[in-house]
C-alpha cells in the first residue's frame, strides 16, 4: 500500500510571509526569555543579599506570578487571539488555575491554620 510522505508546497509569497512571521515571534520570545532570566536573577540576588524574609517572600511570590503569565502568553501561545479555538484553551487554563487556587486555599485554611 502507498506510503508516500505528504509534502507541503508553498508559493514564494507565502514563504516570505511565514518567514516574516517567524522572525517576529522569535524576537518576541527572545525578549520574553530575557525578562524571565532577569526576574530569576533578581529573585536569587534578593535572597543572596540577605534582606528580611518578610520583604523577600512577597516579592518572590509576585515575580513567580509574573513568570507564570509570561510563560503562558509568550511560550504557550495564549496570546494568539486568532488561533483555532483559543477561547476553549483560555477557558481551560483559567479553570485549572481556579481549581489549583481553591486547593491551596483549602490547604492553607483547613490544614495548616486550622480554622
Amino acid at each position: 500500500m502507498a506510503h508516500d510522505t505528504p509534502t507541503v508546497t508553498r508559493t514564494s509569497a507565502q514563504h516570505e510571509y511565514y518567514k516574516q512571521n517567524n522572525k517576529a515571534t522569535m524576537q518576541k520570545q527572545v525578549v520574553n526569555f530575557a525578562i524571565m532570566i532577569f526576574l530569576t536573577l533578581v529573585a536569587f540576588s534578593l535572597v543572596g543579599a540577605g534582606f528580611s524574609a518578610n520583604l523577600v517572600l512577597p516579592i518572590i511570590l509576585l515575580m513567580a506570578g509574573v513568570q507564570v503569565v509570561l510563560q503562558l502568553y509568550s511560550f504557550m501561545h495564549m496570546e494568539e487571539k486568532t488561533a483555532h479555538e483559543i477561547g476553549v484553551v483560555t477557558m481551560f487554563m483559567w479553570t485549572g488555575m481556579f481549581f489549583a487556587f481553591l486547593m491551596i486555599l483549602a490547604f492553607v485554611t483547613i490544614i495548616w491554620w486550622n480554622l
Binding site: M1, A2, H3, D4, T5, P6
Partner: peptide, 11 residues
C-alpha cells in the same frame, strides 16, 4: 518523522 500515508481513491 512519521507523516502517515494516503489511501488513494482507487484503493
Amino acid at each position: 518523522d512519521d507523516h502517515g500515508y494516503y489511501v488513494t481513491v482507487a484503493e
